[in-house]
Nucleic acid binder design. Structure first.
Lengths: 115, 115
DNA sequence: AATGTTAGTATCTTTTTTGATACTATATAC
DNA sequence: GTATATAGTATCAAAAAAGATACTAACATT
């Protein structure tokens, strides 16, 4: 009775102010790189793959690709590939991602207060 | 000339509005459980260990202890143990943690907008 | 004397994330 | 004809996070 296909979302306290399904959010923007990538695309606008790679210190090709694919799948990043040689691919923050601006500002403010 | 004991913080784009060292923040509040724990302690006030355990679906003793210890170490949670038997331990969100309220609200608003 | 209670610790295993390396296509420049 | 540039993919290895299980202390209750 009741298989648990998705453990995460169904038991979170739903009625308290400020509450939302954190595991789900963590899936979307968690991990080591996603916040960095989003921050760049949101606040600096479109970037090419190579630009991102150069700007994000320490990230590997593999990781950057993986993370961008995940963000794209979740509707946070738009990928536009041009059929040129050598290839050109542009990444942009979607509207949904840009809506995170406020959260980034809150994080930033918090960071400054407690640095 | 600057050994890199902490790789994370030193190469982030520092001048853009809304920017802060994401890897460091991810360390503080990332992972599968920390946001959930913080959310409860911030918005519902003090909780005993067992209360947290019962409230957080699927968490194990081990994980809860680990995460609480990490949060305590980072000054986000205060731990108060009473020398009774059976033991009683109370956890509270610190001021620093409560300052995250704004961020939680921003997350929540974002989630609602894009659910 | 056995049982229940709370908040753990100590190990060990599994799963998930992250990293390293080598490889590809193809137009253009040299 | 060789090298260069870009944005990848395909593997494999390592490290980190999470999970499972068993164990503990010490008093109170039955």
């Amino acid at each position: 009775m009741g298989k648990k296909t998705r453990k995460t979302v169904e038991h979170q306290t739903p009625l308290v102010e400020g509450t939302c399904p954190m595991p789900d959010i963590a899936q979307l923007i968690g991990g080591k790189w996603k916040l960095i990538i989003l921050q760049i695309l949101i606040f600096q606008g479109m970037k090419r793959f190579g630009q991102l790679k150069r700007q994000i210190d320490g990230i590997t090709q593999t990781m950057l690709t993986t993370q961008l694919r995940a963000l794209e799948k979740d509707g946070l990043v738009e990928r536009k590939a041009y059929p040129e040689v050598p290839p050109r691919v542009e990444y942009t923050a979607t509207r949904k991602a840009k809506d995170l601006e406020e959260m980034f500002h809150a994080m930033h403010a918090w960071w400054l207060r407690n640095e």
